[in-house]
């Protein structure tokens, strides 16, 4: 993570606390050490859990299923709950949007065939088959933000996902399709299978009507490649949030030490 990505994580955690409640981080020992080195341990008012991921022994290949840690954390968390990526900032209170829904994700995605492979091209564990009643036309859901109200659906979704990920060790030629199937497409398929609607925070990720969500998403690649972009992005983020977060010393200290001193 570069400084702009970390700044995004800082703003994300603090804005969530400010407007929407407590927030907890699930990470491993390496993640914890990194956070401690940056003096950010106080960022998550719900605490930091390293035990869950360190002690987990699910037969999942972390290179293929690089976001499986999110699903393992989701499994441990009581419902209702929100799973929030560290590169996503919710800028406003949204409880009123979540309360009437059973499942809320960030936005739907298109079924781009290079990303969301047809079932015949997905790598599968030995002896695995997809249920006949999977609706493959359902649009996947971006789960950088995911709210699930009921434990029963959460368990159903995660069991389907684990069934696909466990012992699924054959390396694909790229490292996107298997993961986005297990996390994002399966969410929508499982909801469809249980006749549960998914509500989206954004009807279109790039709509100018969006007043509540900033998500780095694929922009991270540009941030990592270009120092000027890194600087301008950080500047804009600080200008937007410095008044609102000025009372949080973890924010002001981080900005002073790692962004402005560069």
């Amino acid at each position: 993570m570069n400084n702009a990505e970390i700044l995004t994580m800082v703003v994300s955690a603090l804005m969530w606390q400010k407007h929407n409640g407590s927030i907890k981080l699930y990470t491993d020992k390496a993640g914890y050490a990194f956070i401690r080195s940056r003096k950010l341990l106080a960022l998550w008012n719900g605490g930091i859990d390293t035990e869950l991921l360190e002690n987990n022994n699910y037969p999942i290949d972390p290179e293929i299923f690089w976001a499986a840690g999110k699903l393992i954390a989701l499994e441990a968390q009581a419902c209702p709950c929100v799973m929030l990526d560290t590169d996503l900032i919710v800028t406003l209170p949204i409880q009123h949007l979540l309360e009437p829904t059973g499942i809320t994700a960030l936005h739907s995605e298109t079924l781009q065939p290079e990303v969301y492979l047809p079932p015949s091209l997905l790598k599968k564990p030995s002896g695995f088959s997809f249920p006949d009643d999977y609706n493959w036309n359902t649009l996947p859901s971006n789960t950088a933000f995911l709210y699930i109200r009921d434990k029963s659906f959460k368990s159903f979704y995660l069991n389907e996902s684990k069934r696909f990920m466990f012992w699924n060790m054959e390396k694909p030629t790229e490292m996107v399709s298997q993961m986005v199937f297990a996390e994002q497409r399966l969410l929508s398929i499982c909801a469809d299978r249980q006749h549960l609607p998914i509500t989206y925070l954004l009807s279109d990720p790039f709509s100018l009507l969006n007043s509540s969500v900033i998500h780095l998403w694929g922009f991270k690649n540009l941030l990592r490649q270009n120092e000027n972009i890194h600087t301008i992005y950080s500047k804009q983020l600080i200008e937007k949030f410095e008044d609102e977060l000025s009372l949080y010393s973890v924010f002001t200290t981080y900005v002073e030490k790692y962004i402005l001193c560069k």
Binding site: I89, Q112, V180, P205, S211, L237, E239
Partner: peptide, 23 residues
């Protein structure tokens, strides 16, 4: 975003809500 077909988790340029921070 130049094309609705790029609204997936693989594309490179996408910054969602960039307008909220003047981008």
């Amino acid at each position: 975003c130049s094309d609705k077909n790029t609204i997936t988790s693989s594309h490179n340029g996408g910054l969602v809500g960039g307008h909220l921070i003047g981008l």
